[in-house]
Amino acid sequence: MPKKPHNFEASMEELDSIVEQMESDQLPLEELISHYERGAKLLKECESALSVAKKRLETIKKGDTKGADASNQRSANSTPSSSDDDEIRLF
């Protein structure tokens, strides 16, 4: 069985590779089951990493909102800033 990846991207790459191998219809049943088990573990790891990332982003957003409150009170009549958005934007 392959080594456990150290990060989200490596886990996703390995999961992609496993899916491709399984879809090729060239693996014996035992290998398919083994690949499925590994894929399920990788999926859990990825979901966990995404959950942690989401919580971190929510914490950052809450922190930014608190810091932005004082500056928003001073400039109440100015145009809204990007920190006023309810959505988290990564790009």
Rank of each mutant, 00 (worst) to 15 (best):
P2C: 06
P2D: 14
P2E: 13
P2T: 10
P2K: 06
K3H: 09
P5A: 06
P5E: 09
H6M: 06
H6G: 14
F8N: 13
E9L: 08
A10L: 04
A10N: 07
S11T: 01
E13N: 13
E13M: 10
E13V: 08
E14A: 07
L15R: 01
L15W: 04
L15D: 12
D16E: 13
I18V: 08
V19F: 14
V19D: 15
E20K: 06
Q21C: 09
M22Q: 09
M22K: 05
M22R: 11
M22N: 05
E23A: 11
S24C: 11
D25Q: 06
Q26W: 04
P28V: 15
P28W: 13
L29C: 04
E30H: 08
E30K: 06
E30Q: 08
L32G: 15
L32P: 03
I33D: 14
S34Q: 14
S34F: 07
H35K: 11
E37Y: 14
E37W: 11
R38M: 10
R38D: 12
R38E: 14
G39M: 01
K41S: 13
L42D: 00
L42I: 10
K44N: 11
K44Y: 08
E45L: 06
C46R: 01
E47M: 03
S48V: 00
A49N: 02
A49H: 01
L50D: 10
S51T: 07
A53F: 06
K54C: 09
K54L: 12
K55T: 13
R56G: 10
L57S: 12
L57D: 13
L57N: 12
L57G: 09
T59K: 07
I60E: 12
K61P: 02
K62W: 02
K62Q: 12
G63T: 13
G63L: 08
G63N: 12
G63Q: 11
D64G: 01
D64S: 03
T65G: 01
T65A: 07
K66H: 10
A68K: 04
A68M: 09
A68R: 03
N72H: 05
N72V: 01
N72Y: 03
N72Q: 05
Q73I: 07
Q73M: 07
Q73T: 11
S75Y: 09
A76W: 08
A76M: 08
S78T: 04
S78V: 02
T79I: 05
T79R: 05
S81C: 03
S81W: 01
S83P: 01
D84L: 00
D84C: 01
D84E: 02
D85E: 10
E87F: 04
I88N: 12
I88A: 10
R89K: 11
L90S: 06
L90I: 14
F91T: 06
F91K: 05
